[in-house]
Design a protein around this nucleic acid. Sequence first.
RNA 1: GGUCUGGUAGCUCAGCUGGAUAGAGCAACGCCCUUCUAAGGCGAAGGUCAAGAGUUCGAAUCUCUUCCGGAUCACCA
Length: 597
Amino acid sequence: MNLESTLTALVTDAVKTLYGLETESNQIQLQKTKKEFVGDLTVVIFPFVKAARKSPEQTGQQIGEYLLQNNPLISDFNVIKGFLNLSISKNYWLEALNEIHANQNFGIIPETDKSGLMMIEYSSPNTNKPLHLGHIRNNLLGHSIAEIQRANGWKVVKTNIVNDRGIHICKSMLAWKLFGNGETPESSGLKGDHLVGKYYVIFDKAYKAEIKELMEKGIGEEEAKKTAPLILEAQKMLLAWENNDTEVRELWETMNGWVYAGFDKTYNQMGVSFDKIYYESQTYLEGKSEVERGEANKVFYRREDGSVWADLTGDGLDEKLLLRADGTSVYMTQDIGTAKLRYNDYPINKMVYVVGNEQNYHFQVLSILLDKLGFEWGKSLVHFSYGMVELPEGKMKSREGTVVDADDLMDEMIQTARETSQELGKLDNCTPEEIEAIVRMVGLGSLKYFILKVDPRKNMTFNPKESIDFNGNTGPFIQYTHARIKSVLRKAFDQGIDFSKLEKTDLDISEKESCLVQLITEFPAVVRQSGEEFSPALIANYIYELVKEYNQFYHDFTILKEENPSLKQFRLVLSETIASIIKTGMRLLGIDVPERM
RNA sequence: GGUCUGGUAGCUCAGCUGGAUAGAGCAACGCCCUUCUAAGGCGAAGGUCAAGAGUUCGAAUCUCUUCCGGAUCACCA
């Protein structure tokens, strides 16, 4: 039984005995005592004032006295206005710390069958261009959510649906065929995904030139876009692909192979991975047959031109196309097929899609369609929706070439970390391998933390400079604190101090220290809530608060120079516990923390 | 226009199941390196929580209206 529920029960008991008031536990409001007041936890008295028929102050006083007399857990109390501030006995905090310190998996629920299996889809790239800043937010969120859900006892399957077919891939292929001169990643020294992306851009340029040319001949823009030779050629290629044309398929496989090799490097650098990858080229046919089944069951209907539609006006939405007149599938069709395959492959209890908020409508529709098709899991799917990332300079636009490439950005972050640490001479005693590892952790940690600390729903601005600051709510600041604690612990260990277990449990620790212990005890609750709300930001901000509080504590006291051996030991145990929570918490965000830096 | 979503300090963000004087960091100002890592800490300053109304003992938080931003409503993916 944790502290809060114990206290809730106590207060329930108190108001019943004193005022004969029956209360539900949710009527008792317990909150952390604000810093400027003395105490650990605060009971809001207002709900009981009526029954007590006394002033809030008197009521608080009375309840406080009752609690103090009836439970040794409460060491003191004070009343301010309608708030009863309770001080919890130091012994309680010391014992709590001891317990947490001994628990290697504090805050983590082991994987059990109880919660079931959660499949989390994220990343979901197209194979015609490299990953960019938007993908970074997606990947980081997806990976972190997976870690958090796993820490909450779910069995997690991370999945990626690669959009490896369609007109956009044909565009890259066609451009390569026409202008590529057989260029390969090996011959050009380019990363595979960048090479294919290069030809996508080349296609776009040439295509635009053709449109311009046609328009100069007096053809309308719409018409020009449709009749430009390049686009017709690309469409022909797509058709050939669908008809399993050997040459087209071979080129398709070669170029996609380049892209996958490139993506693997990017994912690897980012520290994300997948348990199962689906390819749209393998799932879109399944979608078609599902739609046809739906049509047969009168869930969908066919128009005169042969296209298939779902009528969602009854759900307050529009009509939605599912199959084109020529029988080819659209985005929605593929997602239906992919969903079906996934549920065939895994006993999924919860399906989560990490996809940008521009697709909110799509997933609203998908949920309804799956439900109409008779899949009981349709209604319960979760669209984990997130906002756009912008740079301080403004919006990213692929047309204006202001897209921030994921690989470039990560390299830059690492490079900045390297330069900063060199300037400060921080890593002079490390081997080149150590320096590389640390600089990488710090550079990527900056990026990851800055993106994850923000509420996912919001559009955000990524400021590279600010993110790598060693002050404030940043990854490096947290990493730095961790490294510093580790340094203290190493020195203590060298001095032969045993901090494996607290020996004395009647130490007179300061208010600030008990406050820190209290903060530590909240970690599991934060992880639970973060899982329920799908919010890595919750964990990020919690860690920051912990680190900040610790730093203030660290400033006021020196640990190794403390003369009271018991107090010294306590502070070491406290520090080690905090370091361990930082490490666990950051792991849930997908961020590594260095032992030294 | 319909739907969804956001608006909190100059900037970037917390806080939102209603509770005390609305919190951090950055920037700018003033201190503290004989200090377990100054990649740090302390102090002061900075607010009509977009606006208005309602519910309440009490509203940044809940409801309604308005204003501003973003997304979406494709035979694109």
